[in-house]
């Protein structure tokens, strides 16, 4: 009975999320910045950036006020193949020696209802800043078992490599890269 009471209390608090600032939980690795690009048009190649940090503001009563800021250490690229990673970090692709950091700063958040949204923002990658739009789905939020409060989203976007100054020819099927973004924030 007591446990049920605690559960109900927790569920109630969980359901009444307030406007709050969240730190993206990279410390506990509950956030992933992944990309995928077609290999020759025959399969998907996946990679990710292991080191990044960021925060977001979210108010489920006024989602349009949401903002997100993320900094990515581009040198942490990992596609599970050292020689490929070296090439991707080199000047043919991300040129991380010159541009070690990528950033995303949101400019607008448009709620589409049912937990869907469009997040607009500026992505700076390889020294080029371009507007991108991320299709966002809210996964969930609420109390965690350790006294914190969490909120999580998933998002996808895609852009052409050329838009960010990468013109190495990987073939006609590999002009665009998709980003698959999963973030879980812990309320600060």
């Amino acid at each position: 009975m007591k446990q049920l009471a605690i559960f109900l209390f927790a569920a109630l608090v969980g359901a009444t999320a307030q406007a709050a600032e969240y730190k993206i939980d990279t410390k506990g690795a509950h956030a992933f910045i992944q990309f995928r690009i077609k290999h020759l048009g025959y399969s998907w190649l996946y990679g990710r950036f292991d080191d990044f940090d960021g925060s977001f503001f979210y108010d489920d009563k006024a989602p349009e006020k949401s903002t997100v800021n993320v900094n990515i250490d581009v040198t942490s690229l990992n596609s599970n193949h050292a020689e490929r990673d070296k090439h991707l970090r080199g000047s043919d692709f991300l040129d991380v020696a010159k541009f070690p950091t990528a950033t995303f700063k949101s400019t607008a958040f448009e709620s589409l209802g049912e937990g869907k949204a469009k997040l607009s923002g500026e992505l700076t990658l390889r020294g080029v800043t371009k507007p991108i739009t991320i299709d966002v789905t809210e996964i969930g939020g609420g109390k965690d078992p350790w006294g914190g409060y969490r909120q999580g989203f998933t998002g996808t976007t895609e852009f052409a490599l050329k838009d960010f100054g990468i013109d190495y020819n990987l073939g006609p099927a590999s002009q665009k890269v998709e980003m698959i973004l999963d973030i879980e924030g812990v309320k600060i």
Binding site: N80, H81, A82, E83, D85, K86
Partner: peptide, 8 residues
């Protein structure tokens, strides 16, 4: 060390 960096 380049080519074996990932254990290959």
């Amino acid at each position: 060390l380049i080519s074996t960096a990932d254990g290959r």
